[in-house]
Amino acid sequence: MSLSLSSVSVTLSARRVVNNVSLEIAQGRVVALLGPNGAGKTSLMRAALGLLPFEGRASLDGADPRKLSDRERALRAAYLPQRPQSIWPVSVETLVALGRFAHGAAPDRLKPRDQAAVDAALEACALNAMRARRMDELSGGEKARAHLARALAQQAPLLILDEPTAGLDPAQALAVADILRAHALTGAVLFSTHDVALAARVADAIVLMRDGSVVAQGAPREALTPQTLRDAYGREGRLQDVDGDVAFIFR
């Protein structure tokens, strides 16, 4: 699986929200999108999936995402929106089973292969004990995990996740980081986050954006320098090693 974007630009309501962005994600890689609110991270991810019209070239496992059918796209890439919804208070298991849609499975009639995928996703997100609970009975963090499990159940090689750790406590955010790394063993991941330290810790590469353009791109230590962080966020910041782990300090 690979995702390749070349000179991608997105214009929404006559405003250019993504400007000439190129990036490559090969199999086995985790790439983090960083940048302040309104930097164009979400638009870039939606364009990569063909959910938003864009200029430039894109290849989702060799195919232009704009030309793929909904099903073909869903079999190549799973997407977790920034504010995932469960409009009706269905059970956690039903919600996660919707991830099997592109495989032709309905939540109430899962084949063994689909059930195995749902069980694995629930297990990975520590939701086994609450699979029968209704979505409106869950805490914010539990809801976020259920939606992530839905994306995992899709078993698409590429995961595109818009702020998967938003609203999670530090332990749960680290658990999500482990899930992303585990997924990269067989696939690839593109995710956005505001947690710079987490991005530096889990990602193989960083794409730092501001006002729709790339400020810096590369390995975390190279892309996240005090200068690039100032350029992106307008504040001084630096990564610091603490007992072999990475901490991030904004001044």
Partner: peptide, 21 residues
Amino acid sequence: ARGLQALTLGEEAAAAIGANL
């Protein structure tokens, strides 16, 4: 019916799981 089920996730995620809205 299946499309309606997918719309439980909202419009964007329904399209992303492969539903033809």
